[in-house]
Amino acid sequence: MTFLELGGIKIDGQFIRKLGEHLFDLFVIKSSIELAKEMAIETITEFVETQQIADKLKAWDRLATRTSLRSALPKKTDGC
């Protein structure tokens, strides 16, 4: 078996945005966090757009080094 050296596990924003909507997304997030903990590597999350999501992720992953709240970007409108 080959061992891959990883610096972190990135959890795609599609799972983060739907946190709480589907059981599968919750499973993917929590499993990824647990895998990163076991491998002693960081967890990187995308699209953490609410404080509620940030708080949940921090509660599950006390070692998260790249979970940061970001504001949703405003949608571009024509003429502005």
Rank of each mutant, 00 (worst) to 15 (best):
M1P: 00
T2L: 10
T2I: 09
F3P: 00
F3E: 09
F3K: 07
F3C: 08
E5R: 06
E5N: 08
L6E: 10
G7P: 02
G7W: 05
I9V: 11
I9G: 04
I9M: 10
K10R: 08
I11V: 08
I11P: 01
D12L: 01
D12I: 01
Q14W: 05
Q14I: 05
Q14S: 15
F15R: 02
F15A: 10
F15V: 04
I16T: 06
I16C: 07
I16P: 13
R17H: 06
R17V: 10
R17T: 07
R17D: 13
K18H: 12
K18F: 02
K18E: 14
L19I: 10
L19W: 13
G20F: 01
G20H: 03
E21D: 11
E21C: 11
H22C: 00
H22T: 01
L23P: 04
F24S: 13
F24Y: 11
D25P: 00
D25F: 14
D25R: 03
L26V: 05
L26I: 07
F27R: 06
F27H: 07
F27I: 09
F27A: 15
F27L: 10
V28K: 03
V28D: 02
I29C: 05
S31E: 14
S31K: 00
S32G: 15
S32P: 01
S32D: 05
I33Y: 07
I33C: 05
I33P: 09
I33F: 06
E34T: 10
E34V: 08
L35T: 02
L35Q: 02
A36H: 10
K37I: 08
E38T: 12
E38Q: 09
E38R: 05
M39P: 00
M39Q: 11
A40H: 11
I41M: 02
E42V: 09
T43S: 12
T43A: 05
T43G: 01
T43C: 08
I44W: 04
T45C: 11
T45E: 03
T45K: 04
T45F: 14
E46G: 03
E46T: 05
F47C: 12
F47I: 07
F47A: 12
V48D: 03
V48N: 00
E49K: 05
E49V: 00
E49Y: 07
Q51A: 08
Q51S: 06
Q52M: 11
I53E: 09
I53V: 15
A54C: 06
A54S: 05
A54P: 00
D55I: 00
K56W: 15
K56Q: 12
K56M: 12
K56H: 14
L57R: 03
K58W: 05
K58Q: 13
A59T: 08
D61P: 13
D61W: 04
R62T: 14
R62W: 07
L63V: 06
L63D: 11
A64G: 14
A64L: 10
A64P: 00
T65K: 14
R66M: 09
R66A: 10
T67N: 06
T67F: 09
T67V: 13
L69W: 08
R70D: 09
R70E: 14
L73E: 01
L73H: 02
L73V: 02
P74I: 12
K75L: 10
K75S: 10
K75A: 11
K76S: 14
K76F: 12
T77R: 11
T77K: 14
D78G: 12
D78L: 12
D78E: 11
G79M: 04
G79P: 15
